[in-house]
Design a protein around this nucleic acid. Structure first.
Lengths: 247, 247
DNA sequence: TCAAATCAGTTGTCAGACAACCTGTTTTCT
DNA sequence: AGAAAACAGGTTGTCTGACAACTGATTTGA
C-alpha cells in the first residue's frame, strides 16, 4: 500500500480575496514601492483599486497589522512600520519551490534543535527522561522491523522523540519554534521524508547517532548533547539533500 | 538627557474589538474547551454571544486562520486544527511580565545566534566581511568613549554588528528569526538594555568576547564561531539576568 | 493673538443582504 | 426498490451602505 496522505489534497482550494489583497500589499512593501513610514492608501481607495469591498481590504490590513507590518490609527490611516517591528516569524508554503530554501530551513532546524537538546540536558526532569527513553525504545523497535514493515512507526517515533526532548528543555519558545519548523517540513516534504527514511535512515549506524544524543541526555552532558544533536541533524539533512527526488 | 524612548508610549491605546475576540477564542482553544477537530460556533452565533457585529468576528477568525490555528471551509464552518499545523511563531508582548520568560527568550536567542554565526563563518562573502569589520570598528570606537559619552552608539553598533553577521549567514530564515527575537527584546527591554550596557557591557574584557567571534569569522572557523558566539551571548544574558532592575 | 468651535477625511463598528458552497433530505425517474 | 436528481437549510464569503469615534487642519470668535 502506497502512502497517499500527501497526494490528492487541497488542490486549487477557492482563493480568498483578503489573502490575495494582503499578498499584494506585502508585495508593494517588500518591493520597495512602500517603505517604512509611508501611509497606505485609504481603505476605500484600495477597495476601489482592487475592485473588492472595503471589508475585504480591512481583513487584509488586519492581517498585516497582526504581523506588525503596518500600524493603523483611527482617523489617520495605516502606516508601514520599519522592519525591526515585525512580531512574527512565518514560513509561507509558497517558499518550498526551491531546493535551496529547503536546505536553509534544515540548517535552521539543526541550529535550533542543537540548542534545545543542550538545554534539555541540563533542565530535563526524570519524568521527562522516562518518556524520552520510552519513545526511544519504540523507535529502536520500529527500526529493527525494517522499512518494509514499520516505516511510518519509525519516522513518527523519531519525530516524537525529538519533540519530547525539545519540550524537556522546558523552554516554550524553543518548543514552539521547533514545532513550527517541523510542521512546515512535514507538511511539504512528508512523502520525501518517508522515502528518504526508507532508503537511508534505518540501521544500526543511524541509531548510533540517536544513541549519542540519548547518552548525553541521560548523563546531563550539555556539550555532548549539543554536539551529538547537531551532528545528527546535519547528517540527516545531508542524507536528505543527497537524494535528488525530494523535489 | 535621559532616554525616554520607552516611556510615555502606547498606553491604553483604544482596544480593537477583533483582537479581543481573537484572544478570547484562542483562550478557549488553549484552555481546552475547544480541541483539535472541534467546530467553532458559527460566526453569527459568536457575534451574538460577544455582542459585536459579524464583521468583527470574521476579522478575529481570519487572524486565527492566518496563524493556522483554525481552518474554515465555506458552507461548513471553522475548525480547530491540531497544534502541529501552526504556521507562525509569535511572541506576544504580554509575555514579558515574568522574568523567567525573558531568560527563556535570551536562551533561544543564544542558540539561534550561535547557529547563525557558525553558518556565517562558512558562507560569508568578503564584501559582507568588510561591512562587518566596519561595524565592529564603530563598536570598538564607541566603547573607548565610554558609557557616559557613547552609550547608544555602543549598543546600536553592537546590535547592527550581529545583525550583519546573521545576514552574512545568507540564510533568510536565520535572519528573520533573529530579527524578530531581537525586535521583541528591544521593544520590551530597551531601557534595561541600555542601563545594563552602561553598567556591564563596556570595557576591554567584553570587547574580547566580540573579538573572538570576529576572529573566527575572519578565519572561516565554523566551530570557533559557534562556540565564541554562544559564549558571548550566554555571558551577556547572565550579566543582564544578574541585574535585578530589568523588570 | 490665540483659544475654541467647526469641518473634512479616515478608521472602527454595525446591520442587512446576497452569492457560493456543503450536507442531508425529499422527490422523481427507471 | 434503488439510484439519480432536485430541494432545503445552514454556513462562510463578499458586497453595500451607514454611522460612530477619532485626527488634523481650518475657520471662527473674543
Amino acid at each position: 500500500m502506497v502512502d497517499t496522505t500527501d497526494l490528492f489534497d487541497r488542490i486549487d482550494r477557492p482563493r480568498r480575496l483578503p489573502d490575495e489583497v494582503a499578498v499584494s500589499i506585502i508585495g508593494a512593501i517588500e518591493g520597495g514601492q512602500l517603505v517604512a513610514g509611508d501611509r497606505l492608501p485609504t481603505e476605500a481607495d484600495l477597495a476601489k483599486r482592487f475592485g473588492v469591498a472595503r471589508t475585504v481590504v480591512r481583513e487584509a490590513i488586519s492581517l498585516l497589522r497582526y504581523d506588525g507590518i503596518v500600524d493603523s490609527r483611527r482617523g489617520v490611516g495605516a502606516f508601514v512600520t520599519d522592519a525591526s517591528q515585525r512580531s512574527s516569524f512565518r514560513i509561507s508554503p509558497a517558499c518550498f519551490e526551491k531546493r535551496k530554501q529547503i536546505v536553509q530551513l534544515l540548517q535552521l532546524r539543526t541550529g535550533v534543535q542543537a540548542g534545545a537538546c543542550a538545554l534539555a540536558a541540563s533542565t530535563r526532569t526524570s519524568e521527562q527522561m522516562e518518556k524520552i527513553e520510552e519513545t526511544y525504545a519504540q523507535m529502536v523497535a520500529a527500526d529493527k522491523l525494517g522499512p518494509a514493515n514499520a516505516l511510518e512507526e519509525r519516522v513518527d517515533s523519531e519525530l516524537l522523540l525529538y519533540r519530547r526532548i525539545t519540550e524537556a528543555s522546558n523552554n516554550p519558545y524553543y518548543a514552539e519554534v521547533v514545532a513550527m519548523i517541523e510542521a512546515n517540513i512535514q507538511n511539504n516534504l512528508r512523502s520525501a521524508f518517508l522515502k528518504n527514511a526508507a532508503a537511508s535512515e534505518f540501521g544500526a549506524d543511524i541509531i548510533k547517532e540517536h544513541y549519542a544524543v540519548m547518552k548525553a541526555l541521560r548523563e546531563g552532558d550539555v556539550e555532548a548533547a549539543r554536539t551529538s544533536a547537531r551532528t545528527r541533524f546535519e547528517r540527516a539533512a545531508d542524507r536528505l539533500a543527497a537524494r535528488a527526488d525530494f523535489a
